[in-house]
Design a protein around this nucleic acid. Structure first.
Lengths: 118, 118
DNA sequence: CGGTATCCCCCAAGATACTG
DNA sequence: CAGTATCTTGGGGGATACCG
């Protein structure tokens, strides 16, 4: 469909990558980012809702991952209220939504692999 | 299409993951694995061919990544010859091939993102 | 040709405690 | 409620040199 990706270095947000796939893996790689994006697919979620959906993530790690996803343009962060308890809502941006086909393929594959397709 | 992945911990090759997507990201995450799988999609390749396709990877890192992909069942490793210079060929296994839809989606998305679609 | 062996640095990410 | 602040550990991955 398209040519191999050699000799096509890419720079995004100040980081250099040997090829677009490598860049993509860096942007959404790691233990949690794919999962976070997955949970934000259909509807926006609050910080505490995400935490509940991912019981084994620490609040600090969740906070860092959300910050990076926001910086890379995948998600938006909206604050309601100016005094605690405040409410913070995370949602996919248009750019984040463009990633949905990858999430779908990844989710389908990983579920098939684990044999957990309903 | 299927239910969210919370409360569905998974163990694979001795490692525990909070959800299948997290597992998948760990298996094929990092700077290089996606790229290696991408290059092996259509035809098997020798070690030196892969090295040429990824000029900025070191031989040591390439070797390690290939070992991990082989251990996780994505690729096969075939040796021709018993005395140097030997020839080693890497190819996708059936399991590795099952990952192609993810690679396709990832490749398409990353190319679109970079604006490099031919 | 296809790797290993060392050394090293950086950072992802967990544990724990604290806060506006 | 939604985070920060510190500390710590593990492993990814680069540089360089050497080997069967």
């Amino acid at each position: 469909m398209f040519e191999p990706t050699n000799n096509c270095e890419v720079t995004f947000n100040g980081k250099n990558y040997p090829c677009p796939i490598s860049m993509a893996m860096d942007l959404i790689g790691g233990r949690w980012k794919g999962v976070i994006l997955y949970y934000l697919q259909d509807e926006e979620k609050r910080f505490s809702e995400l935490k509940q959906l991912m019981p084994t993530i620490t609040e600090m790690t969740l906070s860092i991952q959300l910050k990076q996803l926001e910086k890379d343009g995948f998600i938006s962060r909206t604050v309601y209220g100016d005094r605690p308890p405040i409410k913070v809502v995370y949602a996919l941006t248009d750019f984040g939504n463009s990633f949905k086909p990858v999430l779908d393929a990844l989710s389908l594959w990983s579920h098939q692999m684990v044999g957990q397709l309903p």
